[in-house]
Design a protein around this nucleic acid. Structure first.
Lengths: 335, 335
DNA sequence: CTGTTAGCGCTTTCAA
DNA sequence: TTGAAAGCGCTAACAG
């Protein structure tokens, strides 16, 4: 049931039907009413591929994430899809752990003529992403902290969150804080670590170089790191991490060493993923506001659509501490 | 850079380019080689909306799920997307908790001319899904246990899984088994409960009507149900549930009552979601093989594409017990 | 073996 | 205020 069929039934031309559907003011109200009547009678379903073919606009935004099984990303996808639904757009979802998959994902974006894309996760792989710029696809990156023509960035401000976390631990009597960071070489890993270090400086706590470890944003990395951390002569009394999965790994590692959280060790995560409050113990974590991230992405995308050649904008969403039960008063002070 | 441009550079017509791209045997190898050369030189990107417009085929499959924050669904999405990538198809992802959203989701499927759709989760809402049948869109349902023209079903076989779980508990000395089911009125809730009851029968254990509760497939439902369960004069020594989130809720409820899992109570989940082995305690659960589910869906979809009017097929994937640490020998037998 | 051409459904000039 | 028509890129039928 296409526009011509509608036009036929309404006794007008398909151009008029198109005008009515797109709310053009040029149509006489009487005519428009007749068309609308037919429209609802026959349950007309528009065919966007015609418009896409003609104008290269698809009412679709791409989303590239490294791994949907990470609940942080699936949570974001949920928010993103919900927002796009409101503005009548679809999402082209792709996961891209490897470079090879990323290349394919980018190609799919191009083929489907997405009106823009959000690129999350692993380091910005310039070479693979290049085609998006060439084809003037508006792009939003997360926490890359850099913008360019047709490319905006949504930064996650960790400063406040880590500061709150460190202050919280300080109030509980902790002095020796350990840190398990994210994968080496990622900008967001450096940013998180800097935020942690800045928090130490602000609170006057000492930075113990030997209590710093590298993780992988996943459970195994956190677990391995915490084991290494506990081999120190003077291990920390509390550990901050780069994300919740790392914190879960740390907690698991501690349990396997016969230690209890938060009795023997306090642990703080980052993200506040689904289930983090259901964990035992419920995780104290620095929440990244996924909804606001998604809102910023949509806003950035819309904004860039106006003029792809203009330099993109910077957005920022602030992470905040959520205190639950994985942190507690320090048990025994090392002298 | 479209086919005509390629044709121009290769000194052929766009029809020949099309034939080369689609692997037609009609093209002389020498010509084909020249075209292929140009193709890779200029990095040609096909425009599927032209094909979609012409033939109504989109190389896209729809996926309708109730809630992406449930890790079972995001896990499935990951598998599904990965499989579709291999066969060069995209996924149109929609979440549809409410009837209103479901209607919109179905409309989007129709607009985007999906080649088929997978409908997961809540009860089959016939009225809302109807348009998919009208438009002859191949459909796959999950555990609806019923097929029709253009509609296949992937059943989840819980019988073995629940039997293994009950046997496992029996071996640990448990006799009073509680059950927290899924939302009332859903077919899959009845199926799971029947599988549990059948397992009791087979193992010769008694079914305690007063130890049966209703959950909601989410954490709060499990928590509320377990509290109610523990108010019984003779509470169970082990609890089986309808899914992992329910089990997590149950464990949380037990903890808040000062009980320990598995020391005071054994708990068994269903799904084996991401993080269920990271939970404290790691969850003993009846794993639903998501990968094989996704494979069955893709197979069903492909199969129905051949002939939409033929009655769909039934597939079945078997759930299996994964023993971890939320189950243990019964502590104190009630006399 | 290769080229020409029609037409998928839509929107937007341009003409009336 | 409305209609006619072109054209987006692709593929298959048909012609050569």
């Amino acid at each position: 049931m296409n526009m011509r069929a509608i036009a036929l039934r309404a006794g007008v031309s398909s151009a008029t039907v198109s005008r009515v559907i797109n709310g053009s003011p040029l149509v006489k109200e009487r005519t428009a009413a007749r068309v609308r009547e037919v429209l609802s009678e026959v349950n007309y379903i528009p065919n966007p591929s015609a418009t896409t073919l003609k104008y290269g606009r698809s009412k679709t935004y791409g989303l590239i994430i490294p791994d949907i099984s990470n609940p942080f990303y699936s949570g974001f996808l949920g928010e993103f899809e919900e927002l796009l639904l409101e503005v009548d757009h679809d999402v082209l979802f792709t996961s891209a752990q490897t470079t090879e998959k990323l290349v394919k994902a980018v190609r799919r974006m191009l083929m489907r003529q997405v009106d823009g894309a959000v690129f999350m996760g692993s380091e910005f792989e310039t070479r693979e992403i290049e085609p998006l710029f060439l084809h003037k696809i508006p792009l939003v990156t997360i926490d890359r902290r850099s913008v360019q023509a047709g490319c905006s960035d949504v930064a996650i401000d960790f400063e406040l969150g880590y500061l709150q976390a460190v202050q919280h631990l300080q109030e509980l009597g902790h002095k020796r804080l350990g840190y398990i960071g994210g994968t080496e070489g990622l900008r967001t890993s450096r940013i998180r670590q800097h935020a942690f270090e800045a928090a130490l400086t602000k609170t006057g706590l000492r930075l113990h170089e030997n209590l710093m470890r590298i993780g992988d944003y996943r459970v195994p990395g956190g677990e391995a790191a915490v084991r290494s951390l506990m081999e120190e002569k003077a291990p920390p009394t509390a550990i901050l991490t780069a994300n919740d999965l790392t914190a879960f790994g740390a907690i698991r590692g501690l349990h396997s060493l016969g230690l209890s959280v938060p009795k023997d060790m306090s642990v703080v995560g980052v993200d506040d993923v689904f289930l983090s409050e259901v964990m035992q113990p419920p995780l104290t974590t620095i929440r990244i506001p996924r909804r606001r991230m998604a809102e910023a992405c949509v806003q950035a995308l819309h904004q860039m659509k106006e003029n792809v050649d203009r330099r993109g904008s910077r957005f920022s969403v602030a992470a905040q501490l959520i205190v639950r039960e994985s942190t507690a008063r320090v048990f025994k002070q090392k002298p």
